[in-house]
Design a protein around this nucleic acid. Sequence first.
DNA 1: TAATTTTATTAGTCTTGACTAATTTTTTAA
DNA 2: TTAAAAAATTAGTCAAGACTAATAAAATTA
Lengths: 224, 224
Amino acid sequence: MHPSSHSQTNSEENYLKIIYHLGNEGKTKISPTAIAEALNNNPASVVDMLKKLVDKKLIQYEKSKGVKLTAKGMKIALLIVRRHRLWEVFLLEKLEYSWDEVHEVAEQLEHIHHPLLADRLDKFLGFPQYDPHGDPIPSASGEMADIHKTILSEVADGKTCQVVGVKDTSSSFLQYLKKLDIGIGTKITLVEKIPFDGSVVITIKNGAKTTVSKIFADNLLVHD
Amino acid sequence: MHPSSHSQTNSEENYLKIIYHLGNEGKTKISPTAIAEALNNNPASVVDMLKKLVDKKLIQYEKSKGVKLTAKGMKIALLIVRRHRLWEVFLLEKLEYSWDEVHEVAEQLEHIHHPLLADRLDKFLGFPQYDPHGDPIPSASGEMADIHKTILSEVADGKTCQVVGVKDTSSSFLQYLKKLDIGIGTKITLVEKIPFDGSVVITIKNGAKTTVSKIFADNLLVHD
DNA sequence: TAATTTTATTAGTCTTGACTAATTTTTTAA
DNA sequence: TTAAAAAATTAGTCAAGACTAATAAAATTA
C-alpha cells in the first residue's frame, strides 16, 4: 500500500484508542507513562510510538508536554471506538455472548478494516445508540449520543429509564437479570425507594411491580 | 502467553491455510516456491517460516522433499477455513455484501481468535453447509460435506440442483441473478438444453420456465 | 552423462514494535 | 532553593517476518 495511506497498524490504533479514553475523549493532554501503564508497555516504547504518530499527524506531542489527539487522530479514534462498540452489541445480541465476554473479542474485531463494514454492521444491528456497557456508540460521522448513564438506585421516583448495561458482570447477577426478563433496552419505571434498606420498587416493561435490593439497583446501569 | 500455547500468528495461519489449499486439502506435498507464489512472498522467507512450522510440529518438511500438514496442522488449517467460510456467509447474508467482496474481509476475520466464536457464528447462521462460493464449510470437528460442485450447464436434463456460488462476480452478472431471484440455496431444475447454442431452459424455485444462455449457465455453480 | 536451467537453501539485512539500561528533565519535598 | 524522587527520553538490543544476493542442489535437456 502507498506510504501516504490512511490505514493504521493494530498497534497504532490501540495507541489512538487509549489516548482517546485516557484523555477525556481525547481532548486533554496525557503523559507517556499513563499510556504505558494502560497498554502494559514500557514508557520507552511509548515514546517511540508517539514520535511515529506525530509524523503521521495523528497526535500533538511536545517533549514533556503531554499528548493529545489531532482532529485527524480523533476521527480515527472515534472510528475504532465505534467499531469496538458495534461488535460488542453484535456479540451480545446475535451470538449470545455474555456482558463480560464481549470486550475481549471486540478488542480484536475493532481492527478489521473495510470501508463498508462498520456502517453495514450498524444497519444490521438497527443503529444501536449504546453498547452493552451503556457507553454511547459514535455515529458514522463521529457524533455520539449524550451520556446520562447512571445507576438504577439514583433514578428519581416515578421516572422511567432504559437499561444500558451492568456494573457487576457475575453470572449470578446476569442470571437474575435473565429471570427478571431484563436486558439491554428494557424499560424500567422506578415506582418508589424504600428508605429502610434502599430497596427499590420497579415495574419492568410496564408489567407488575417487583422489588429489588439496593445492591441490585446499584449494579444496573440505566439512562433516561 | 505461554510459549507452548496453541495459538498461531496471522502469518503462520496464512501459511497453514495455503499449504492446505495448494496441497489437495493438505494431503499432498507441495514446494516452497508454490507457497511463495501463492502468498506473493519470497521463497527464502517461505523456507524460514517452514522451519518454524516444523518446530511447532504443524507441518512435515524435509529439505527439497516438499511440505505437507501434520494432523495437528491439518486441524488448525481446517479451523481457519471454517472461520473464513462462516464469515463469508455472514457478510453475504447478514451484511448485504456481494459475492466478490466477502473474500477480502473474511481474510481478516478468519484470524479472530476466541474459543466460542466460530461455533456461535455457525449456530447464528443456521449451520450452513456451503459458503458463497459453493465450497463446503468444515464442521466444528473438521468434517466437510462432500463436494459435487459443478456448473449449471453440466447438470443433466430433468435434474434439480441448488445454487452454491458463482464463477463470474461481475456486477452485471450479479444484478441479473438478482433480477431472476436467484441466490444461494435457490433450487433450479434443468428442463432441457438447446443443442443449437447451449442455452438452457430452467425453472427457478419450481416456477415458470426461463431460458438462460450458455454463458450464464457456465458461470453459475450448483450442486445436487 | 554433462551442461543448463530451475528450485531450494543459506547468509546477511531491514522494519516494526517491543525491550533494558543509562541519562536527562521535571516535579516534589525537605 | 536544593536534594531526592519520579517521569521522560535516548541509545542500543531483540524477535518476527519480510527482503536480496549468493550458493547449493535438483531437474531437465541436449
